[in-house]
Amino acid sequence: MAIGRVVVAVVCALVLTAPSTEAAPAQDEHSPTTMTMTYEADGLVGVVHAPRTLVGALPLVLTSDISARPLVRQGAVVVVVPDRSALPRHRELWRELSDGTGPLAQRFAGFARHVVVAEP
């Protein structure tokens, strides 16, 4: 009877520690955790997609028509705006934020030292 228990214990241990046959995800399928927030300032509305952890200087991408997810996975902060003609005004809001001022400064203060606003 004791030998039977040992055999069962060994079989259970082998099953629990056996390597998985499930395929591991490819390296390019791994993405950092992201966050999505919206803002309304000076009559402008934007949806911000960004890495959850902001490290270093991240490029700011302002757009009205592309999927943000691939760019965020590459470390960009993406702002999607519904009105393409308002992109320059959004850029100015984020430029002010990068200086620590403007209407976005309170809500997005953590972005101030991490977002690089490029010229168009």
Score class of each variant (00 low, 15 high):
residue 118 A to G: 05
residue 49 H to C: 03
residue 67 S to I: 07
residue 15 V to W: 08
residue 44 L to N: 11
residue 79 V to F: 00
residue 101 T to C: 11
residue 26 A to T: 13
residue 113 R to K: 15
residue 62 L to T: 03
residue 7 V to Y: 07
residue 55 V to H: 03
residue 109 A to K: 13
residue 95 R to Y: 07
residue 100 G to P: 15
residue 33 T to H: 01
residue 94 W to L: 07
residue 117 V to K: 01
residue 55 V to E: 05
residue 109 A to H: 12
residue 107 R to L: 08
residue 55 V to Y: 01
residue 51 P to F: 10
residue 37 M to H: 14
residue 72 V to T: 15
residue 119 E to N: 08
residue 15 V to P: 07
residue 105 A to C: 13
residue 97 L to E: 03
residue 70 P to L: 00
residue 57 A to G: 13
residue 10 V to D: 05
residue 49 H to E: 01
residue 31 S to C: 10
residue 94 W to M: 08
residue 45 V to R: 05
residue 95 R to A: 12
residue 93 L to D: 02
residue 55 V to Q: 04
residue 4 G to N: 12
residue 56 G to H: 03
residue 80 V to L: 10
residue 103 P to M: 08
residue 27 Q to Y: 04
residue 90 H to R: 08
residue 57 A to I: 10
residue 31 S to L: 10
residue 116 V to N: 00
residue 23 A to K: 11
residue 38 T to E: 10
residue 13 A to L: 15
residue 84 R to C: 04
residue 50 A to F: 01
residue 23 A to Q: 14
residue 35 M to P: 03
residue 43 G to K: 03
residue 72 V to N: 01
residue 49 H to N: 06
residue 80 V to C: 04
residue 75 G to Q: 00
residue 69 R to E: 15
residue 27 Q to N: 07
residue 93 L to Q: 06
residue 28 D to S: 12
residue 34 T to S: 15
residue 110 G to F: 02
residue 46 G to L: 11
residue 18 A to L: 13
residue 52 R to V: 04
residue 93 L to E: 02
residue 81 V to N: 00
residue 7 V to A: 10
residue 116 V to I: 14
residue 13 A to P: 11
residue 56 G to A: 06
residue 34 T to G: 15
residue 46 G to T: 06
residue 46 G to N: 07
